[in-house]
Amino acid sequence: MSDPGPAPVIGITTYRQPAGWGAWRDVPADLLPSDYALSVERAGGVPVLLPPLASREAARVALSRLDGLLIAGGADINPARYGQQPDPQVTVWYDDRDASELWLLAEADEARLPVLGICRGMQMMAVAAGGTLVQHLPDVVGHAVHAGPPDGYSSTEVTVDGPGRVTELIASRLSVPSHHHQAVDAHPGFRIVARDGDGVAQAMEADGDRFAVGVQWHPETADDSGVFDGLVAAARERAARRR
């Protein structure tokens, strides 16, 4: 059996928001739910957390040390990033994180780095490619089921329609944990490969031989390792080519 080489290193973007622990309250912190890193580890990768970076050059340097990139979930994206005024339901965004992830995605495109986007991450991939978002899904589908409870997830039935990478990684029909009130609308350079019963885009992937996949749900919170396996496998192959 051939040596697969060292485990690939996967960078994961993080929040920068006030947090509390012990006696400390409202301290600016770079943080992320541990489910993301644990999912990368279970898939055979080495997770590295990436705080919001200060420049595109910093993003380039960071990615030069990585084998793959995961754009995590989080707050809404500033609608100005895709040429729109904010909907009344879009009131909070973080410009430092938006800028950092756009730089990371631009550099990842140039370096042909494998990328996985989760929830906000899928939306950011679309925006980085020149696409747009549905700012408030209930205005379109007539209900708020996708958002789930404030501190939890709803269950969404998703149908995957291949062919493509996503078809090879997960079941063709599955129930997924969801927590979002926005969705991808325009998505240049990507194919929608999964939708739910409302027709909402639930997964997309880029054409060609590069792994660039986004999912609207939260696989890190469920027994749903397929997309993490795909990211880590693609990162391992890229790392082996560079050795």
Rank of each mutant, 00 (worst) to 15 (best):
L169W: 13
H146E: 10
Y153N: 04
S172H: 11
P177Q: 04
P163N: 04
S154D: 12
V160S: 02
A144C: 10
T156C: 14
S155Y: 07
A147M: 14
E168A: 15
D161W: 02
V160W: 03
D161H: 09
A147Q: 14
L169D: 00
G152V: 00
S155L: 09
G148Y: 05
V160I: 11
R173P: 01
G162E: 04
S154E: 09
T159W: 07
R173L: 04
G162Q: 05
A144N: 11
V160R: 01
V160F: 05
T156W: 12
V160A: 08
Y153S: 04
S155V: 12
G162P: 09
L169E: 04
D161M: 07
A171D: 12
G148E: 02
V176H: 07
L174S: 06
S175C: 12
G148Q: 03
P177R: 03
A147Y: 11
G164S: 09
A144W: 07
S155F: 08
V160G: 03
G164R: 03
V158A: 12
G162A: 07
L169F: 11
G162C: 06
T167N: 07
T159L: 11
G152Y: 01
L174A: 10
R165G: 09
H146Q: 14
L169Q: 05
T167K: 07
S172Y: 05
V176D: 03
E157K: 15
S175L: 13
V166F: 03
G152H: 01
P163G: 03
S154N: 11
E157Y: 11
G152K: 00
D161C: 05
G152F: 00
P150T: 06
S154T: 08
I170P: 00
Y153K: 02
V176Y: 08
V160Q: 01
T167S: 15
A147I: 04
L169G: 01
G164Y: 07
G152D: 00
T167A: 15
V166D: 00
R165H: 13
R165K: 13
H146P: 14
V160T: 08
P177T: 04
V166S: 03
T167M: 04
T159H: 09
P163Q: 03
E157D: 15
H146R: 14
V160M: 06
H146V: 14
G162L: 07
S175R: 15
E168L: 13
P149D: 03
L174G: 05
V145D: 15
P177W: 03
P163I: 06
V166P: 00
S155A: 13
V145N: 14
S155D: 12
G148K: 02
V176W: 06
L174I: 08
P149N: 01
P150K: 10
D151P: 00
V176I: 09
Y153I: 02
A171Q: 07
H146F: 14
R173H: 13
